Every structure is written in C-alpha cells, then in structure tokens.
Computed example of a mutant assay.
Amino acid sequence: MKLNLEQIPREQTLSKKEFLHKYFKPQKPVVIERFIEDWPAHSKWNLDYMRELAGEKTVPLYDDRPVKHDEGFNEPHAKMKMRDYIDLLKSGPTKYRIFLWNIIKEVPELQKDFTYPDFGLRLMKGLPMLFFGGRDSHTFMHYDIDLANIFHFHFEGEKQCILFPQSETKFLYKVPHSLITREDIDFANPDLDKWPALQYAKGYVANLEHGNLLYIPEGYWHHMKYLAPGFSMSLRAIARKPKNFGKAVFNIFFMRHFDTVMRKIKGQKWIDWKNEKAISRTHSLLLQK
C-alpha cells in the first residue's frame, strides 16, 4: 500500500486574482511552472553560480540523524565552506542539507536576481531563505513554527514534495511539543504495517524542477526529498487565519521554550517519552475511527 496522495495542481502562470480565488482562499497548494522566467535568477541560479558567489562562506549543515536532548534548536550537525559543500553535492549522494540560510544576511547580492511577487499577501521581505540538498537527502515531515504561507522556488535538479494539511495531523504520528512527526518514518516509502494510521491521511505530492514555484498553504506539513542535487528559495507571508496565527504565537513564545526546558530537566527521557506518545496517541485515535 502507498500513501493516499493526489498530484498538486499545476499552472503555467497565475494572476493575483486567480491565485487568491483558486488557491489562497481555499488553502490549496499549487505548482506554478513558469512564473519566474523574467527573473535574472531563472537563468543565473545554479550550483556553480552559488559556488562562485558564496564559495568562501561557512555554511551550517544538517542531516537526518534523530533529534537529541542535548542539541539546541536548529543547531547544525556540521559546517564547511560553501565551495566544499557544493563539491560534495556534485560528487554523489549526501545526507547533508542547508536550510534557513538568509540571503540578506549572507549574500545580499542575490537580492538583485529576484523580485518579490505580488500575490495579494504581504511577504516578509527580511526573510528570503535558501535550502540546499544532495541526491537522496530529505527533511523530516514537519510544519513551520509560524504556520506561514510559503512560496517555494526551486533551482537546479529535481525535488519531491509531499504535503498534508493540518486536518490530517491525527494520522501522521506527530511528536508532542514539537513541529515534526516520528523521525523514523520514511514518507517517500513508508512501512504502512508499522505505521498503519498513515493510510488514512489524505495529502498531496509534486516534483519540482528548475524554475517551478510551489505554494504551501498555512501550516501545511511538508516533506522534501532531493532527487538530484539542487536548492530552493522560500518567501513567506504571515498566517492570516486567526487560529493559525494563534498557534504561531504559541509555538514561538511558549512551546519552543517549554520543550527546551524539559530537555534540560529530563534529558533523553523527554525525547523518548515524546516519541512513544506519538505512537500511542495516534493509535488510540485510530481505534476510535
């Protein structure tokens, strides 16, 4: 058995009115294939260009090792020069990824290569973030702490994106007091005998290629797997639904800090308890289905 996923709708391009009516208001994802062809980034941005422009920058790297109690929030697992990292990406599969790499802070020249699109939402212009990955590297299934509307632009290579709305959280083995599901679930090829609730979750899937834009609605769960080395840029707009905005405030000002304190107090037992709860809570809801 496979996950219950439908293909994300694809459009060649969209006007602001069409986007708001067809996708933002109903909170549905969409891939726009040719929206950024007038950006300099469309022709310039590839791994070689990033190596040339930012080769001397030291970048934080993350892999797919499980969360540990003594690691800080978003603490990197390794660091290296961008030049060396891109060479690593090109040499073969690697688990190392870059995420949340702020263009304005790290390589302000890149701002000349794109414009902020007008989709009728106020984009947070101080937070254009880059994400890099090598073949077969992936993120854990997660949603963003601020439950933002995300515009995800992909460059070079190919990337598989699996999305679930918040309504499906009950089937996803969410780890309590966190933004992730069980880290040992391979969402690209899940074992549904081990994780039976997943068969009831209804989600979306799409592969992104160079120049594609993926709109991820507020609070959607997302799992990204690089099918070939590449990178993406995300722009974001604050959650507009009051419920999602309230969750974002709670996550940022309470949940994150509570989890940090509990890790310090209980250590690995806290992490283990959360992982066990992810299974017991999900399966108890499954019995009620």
Results as ranks from 00 to 15, higher is better:
I279T: 13
H138Y: 11
Q12G: 12
D64C: 14
H21L: 12
N46Q: 06
P40S: 06
K202F: 04
N74G: 05
Y220I: 08
D63H: 05
D146P: 09
K194C: 09
I98P: 01
L163T: 05
V67A: 12
V67L: 15
N244E: 09
T139D: 02
F119N: 04
L47F: 02
R263W: 11
F35T: 06
I279A: 10
Y96F: 07
E6S: 14
L227M: 14
F24M: 13
P128E: 00
H210G: 04
K269F: 11
F99V: 15
K125V: 14
F132G: 00
K194E: 08
Y143Q: 09
D87L: 13
K90D: 14
R256V: 13
Q12A: 15
F132R: 02
H223N: 08
G211E: 05
I271K: 02
P117E: 00
A248T: 11
H152S: 08
K105E: 12
M255Q: 07
D48M: 13
S15T: 13
V30Y: 01
L285R: 10
A237Y: 00
G203M: 03
F24L: 15
L61N: 05
T282H: 04
K289P: 10
F171H: 10
I8L: 09
Q166T: 08
E75V: 08
A197N: 09
D70Y: 03
L287T: 14
Y204P: 04
P128T: 04
S232Y: 02
Y200K: 14
D63F: 05
N102I: 03
L121S: 07
P229S: 02
I216F: 02
D186Q: 05
Y220F: 15
D70H: 11
K159V: 11
P29M: 06
I238L: 08
K95V: 15
I271Q: 00
I216L: 07
I162S: 00
M80S: 03
G219L: 07
W101Y: 05
N275V: 04
D87Y: 02
I32W: 00
E106P: 11
I180G: 02
I103D: 07
Y143D: 01
H77K: 14
V107W: 04
T115M: 08
F114D: 03
E11C: 14
W39F: 08
G120Q: 10
E209W: 12
G203W: 02
A278I: 07
N149I: 09
E37D: 10
E156D: 09
